[in-house]
Design a protein around this nucleic acid. Structure first.
Lengths: 209, 209
DNA sequence: GCAGATTTCAGGATTTCGCTGGATTTTAGG
DNA sequence: CCTAAAATCCAGCGAAATCCTGAAATCTGC
């Protein structure tokens, strides 16, 4: 075999059984080789430095740490790194964040094996691949304004049951300003009220719960 | 090998890569054999009838269908069936529902391989196994009142942005009664307000989002 | 049949929310 | 430097939610 031509792959994943599945599937392909594995953002970076893989398969949810951080750190050091996000969330917020941070693909964990393999090959060939179903989610909300950082901050406090007065004092702003932000949040998300706004934001992956 | 002594296992799972991992891990054990696979509740039942496995590994979230339905259906027909739930949610609500419906174990997908294997053996030996971390989640809310069916119904409508008047008309009850239910929901969940109640219920797995 | 839980209802007090229509300051990007 | 976007502030009104007390009907399990 021409080992030099194999696609080297690093998996970043904290579900052992899923990792085993990746290992088996990749191991069965003569043109691919799993060269390393990491379970946290920190490990991901050091493993990347060690192996310089052609492709990195990464779950966004790594216990406490966020996969995006690992993604940004790796791309900061190796701007050519090809990283495919492999996760369960189909919210447009997470997809956008990942692609903006430089991901080369975004694949759901429910994807069939063959499709996953062909995406790996496609990305290795230099393309940026996002499955139609995922792209559709993205397009659904395209052109609509994102929530600003401040709005997300306010929304988090709403989610946790703070009233407007409490939000104002926590953020050290006036209650009027809080009202203003909330109105914008509800408008942007086309929600009926604050509760609905939280629901929609969570569904879209703009807010964790 | 004494094939007759092998533990026969059915997996019910709609994540192909995860299923592959299960297959590999189980295949590497001489005392176990994966005898079937299903990706939906319906398939789960027919596969169970066909193979009568010693152990069924089941994800609760099967696309649209609910794993609990499959669990109940199987246990209705084969009351001795030993079913281990293998899922990502650690909310006490889901755990309770599964165990009440007759699950023999509840394991998180983040569990290490060895632990998963020993749980399979333990359950096959007739024990009911729930990992300490999962049991802890359960104990945390033990003794606290569950939400009633009506309360869940109301909470769902709150989540979706209905106002009390709308909830009243949808459920065909008076607004006073809606107020009463909401007060009870907020009290039971120790929430600050309706929004917080939704957040807590989702975190605890009492409500989908 | 009875106890306990669930669901239903009234009416009113108080607080909070959502909306209106401006106006100013700060920050980021071309 | 200039403009646009974001964040900040003011004030007040009507609608909605929350909180209270006090009952009664229905359902379920023993």
């Amino acid at each position: 075999m021409e080992t030099t031509k194999q696609i080297s792959i690093l998996s970043v994943e904290d579900h052992p059984v899923f990792g085993e599945g990746l290992s088996t599937i990749i191991g069965s392909q003569s043109d691919m080789a799993l060269v390393g594995h990491a379970a946290t953002a920190g490990e991901a970076i050091s493993e990347f430095r060690k192996h310089r893989p052609d492709i990195t398969l990464m779950d966004l949810r790594l216990g406490e740490t966020d996969g995006i951080d690992a993604l940004v750190a790796i791309r900061g050091e190796f701007s050519h790194a090809r990283i495919i996000i492999l996760t369960t969330s189909d919210g447009d917020g997470e997809i956008q964040r990942a692609l903006r941070a430089g991901a080369s693909g975004y694949v759901l964990k429910s994807t069939p094996k063959n499709e996953l393999l062909s995406i790996i090959r496609s990305v290795n060939a230099g393309r940026r691949h996002v499955p139609a179903e995922v792209a559709a989610r993205l397009v659904e909300f395209m052109g609509e304004d994102d929530l600003t950082p401040r709005e997300i901050q306010v929304l988090r406090l709403i989610r946790d049951g703070n009233r407007n007065k409490e939000i104002a004092s926590r953020l050290d702003i006036s209650e009027t300003t809080v009202n203003f932000h909330i109105k914008n949040i509800v408008d942007k998300l086309r929600a009926n009220d604050r509760t609905h706004a939280v629901t929609i934001a969570v569904r879209r992956g703009l807010l964790q719960i």
